[in-house]
Amino acid sequence: MGKRKINWTVWFSYLVVIGFIGYILVMYGLNNPRSTGIVSGKLENPNFHYNTWKILFFIHITTGSIALLLGPFQLLKASRKKIKTHRIIGKIYVSSIFLSVPAGIYLAFYATGGIGSTIGFLILDAAWFITTFLGLKRIHERNIQSHQEWMLRSYAITLVFVTFRLLVPIFMFILHLGFAISFPLAVIVGIMINLSLVERYLKRKLKGTKNTGSTILKVDVK
Rank of each mutant, 00 (worst) to 15 (best):
L68S: 01
F20I: 00
E44K: 15
G71N: 14
G213I: 13
K81N: 12
K218E: 13
M151A: 09
G114H: 08
K203W: 09
L69M: 13
R4W: 13
L107M: 05
G29Y: 07
H86L: 12
N51C: 00
L99G: 07
F179T: 08
I92F: 15
Q145Y: 12
V39M: 06
Y28R: 14
P102F: 14
K5S: 14
G2P: 07
T215V: 11
I97C: 01
S96D: 10
I174H: 11
L195C: 05
F121A: 08
T62S: 13
E141V: 04
I123P: 04
I105K: 10
L166T: 04
L202H: 03
S35R: 06
Y106A: 08
R142C: 00
K205D: 06
R4I: 11
N7H: 08
T112I: 06
A67E: 00
F121V: 05
K84E: 06
H140A: 10
I170F: 15
G213P: 11
I181G: 09
Y110N: 14
W150A: 03
G90W: 14
I123Q: 04
K207R: 12
Y110I: 01
V39T: 11
W128D: 02
L166E: 02
H140D: 02
L177G: 12
V10H: 09
L15K: 03
K5Q: 12
I66E: 13
V160Q: 00
I216H: 05
N51S: 10
K203M: 02
G19E: 05
H147W: 11
S79W: 05
I89N: 14
I59K: 13
K91P: 00
T63N: 03
L99K: 01
P72M: 06
T63W: 02
N51Y: 04
Y23W: 12
F121C: 10
M1F: 10
G178P: 11
G113Q: 06
V17T: 15
F171L: 07
G104K: 11
F12W: 11
I88V: 14
D220S: 13
T52D: 10
W8L: 15
I92T: 15
G114D: 01
G178E: 12
S35Q: 10
L134T: 04
Y23K: 12
N7F: 09
L30G: 09
F179Y: 12
